[in-house]
Design a protein around this nucleic acid. Structure first.
Lengths: 117, 117
DNA sequence: TTCGTTAGTTCCGAAGTTCCGAACTATGGG
DNA sequence: CCCATAGTTCGGAACTTCGGAACTAACGAA
């Protein structure tokens, strides 16, 4: 188990960010990490919506987010804590993360097939 | 050769947009379609930077951009003309495209390894 | 019309990526 | 030490992407 690798913010590539967030599961995990106060145990997101994600997939998802420069992970005892690197990413690519998170939120809220709306 | 399929703007998904633009080639094509006056023949982008992209790959890239809802393609005689659906996408996902294009531009301009710049 | 050229699409195999169960590692408590 | 919990790594099946070769469509010239 090698220690976590976090790219320097200067090495963060837009394509890696877009790739990481082009998976709805990862986008949901990232959104959750931020809304849940920027700290989240890995197992706390194992159910997203009504879908259960296997541990191994989850581990990979966190790795992708980490290597894209979106989150920072530390081991705390047996757990992992993740917090977003929003401020750094925002400084490098202004407006990018907000626009992406917004787009997902808009899609979820404004779909044409909402029964009650 | 079936006619082109363009999703209604209501059916455009953020994940499709992010996926489409997470490929640097496609992002460059999309940026070029916009900066070159929103109309561009397919063959006119066959060299991006110093890399030649085969016709078949190019055709697929355009298809991905089209099906993500980012561009609209029409056949004009033997050529294809593409223009961006920026206005529609902007109305649905405000700021998203600008932030992405900006991010790629920031990366290209601020890279530490630019020889000639 | 037929031939030739140009522009793009489709097919299909090779190469790469992603998914997820099983086995593994690391930490902490009895 | 042994067990439980939290997460990682391995490996194979399923999926995606790349790109060359063959194909189709539109146009011009003869």
């Amino acid at each position: 188990m090698r220690p976590f690798v976090h790219p320097a913010i200067e090495d963060v590539q837009p394509e890696a960010i877009l790739h990481a967030l082009s998976d709805p599961n990862r986008a949901a995990i990232f959104a959750k990490i931020m809304t849940a106060g920027c700290v989240e145990a890995c197992s706390a997101v194992s159910a997203l919506g009504d879908r259960v994600i296997p541990k191994s997939s989850l581990s990979t998802h966190f790795k992708v987010l980490r290597e894209a420069g979106l989150i920072r992970s530390e081991r705390h005892g047996v757990e992992m804590r993740n917090h977003s690197r929003w401020d750094e990413v925002e400084a490098r690519f202004p407006g990018l993360l907000a626009a992406i998170i917004n787009a997902y939120a808009a899609e979820a809220g404004a779909g044409p097939c909402r029964s009650g709306a």
